[in-house]
Design a protein around this nucleic acid. Structure first.
Lengths: 108, 108
DNA sequence: TCACTATATTCCTATATCGTTGTATAGTTA
DNA sequence: TAACTATACAACGATATAGGAATATAGTGA
């Protein structure tokens, strides 16, 4: 991997921080099966309109989601599948942790 | 991938948030080549002692780093290489963005 | 025991950001 | 134009957290 230069560190951290918010992860999860309007995202996630809109702005500005305007509606969609690769790795880590914990428990 | 359940979302977000801090990314980068004492990490990252210690506690509590005590020193080490796979994916996203931007520029 | 070093912890302040409320804008339909 | 809907934006309060300063703890050596 490219060694994280000081400048790069800031940018990469910004991306991780964006994913470090349950509301935004919920939005991304809601977009897994295809593009959705803001209203649909609100329903799927339980977020308020203003709140959903703000999170979507951020996700869009960082390139996580694409937007498409059609009449009154704005459709948002995932800008790539690699977001879920990230989540997979995180979940993999979690599994390792829990199995390790289980081993510790059973050993005692 | 396992669909992110509501409970899982919270936990995964917590992990991403931990990586969403430049100081902690700098620490992890400093640990790339092997275990380091807190003092060494302070030198490598420029963090203050208290600050480095606090970030290390968090990284350790989330399973990102392992610790080993030896005399006066405490050695920290990466708990796995997958952290850099995460960074790689993020950097890959960044590259795609910049090349896409470049295309837009040249097209105009 | 005393002095010293390495690390952890506590307390404090400043800043960031989440979520809400209210409002503005843009598109649609009558 | 007027009324309505979908989305965005601005302002605000509340909470979280980063970093600094001071202190505590633990290990070492004289």
């Amino acid at each position: 991997m490219a060694k994280l230069s000081p400048a790069l560190v800031e940018v990469v951290a910004e991306r991780f921080k964006a994913l470090g918010e349950p509301a935004r992860l919920r939005i991304l999860t809601a977009l897994r099966e295809g593009e959705r309007t803001v209203s649909e995202i609100m329903n799927a996630t339980g977020l308020s309109q203003a709140n959903a809109s703000k999170h979507l702005q951020l996700l869009h500005s960082l390139g996580f989601v694409a937007r498409r305007k059609e009449g009154l509606h704005v459709y948002y969609a995932l800008a790539g599948r690699d977001i879920f690769r990230l989540c997979d790795i995180m979940c993999g880590r979690l599994e390792q942790e829990t199995t390790a914990r289980r081993k510790l428990m059973s050993r005692a």
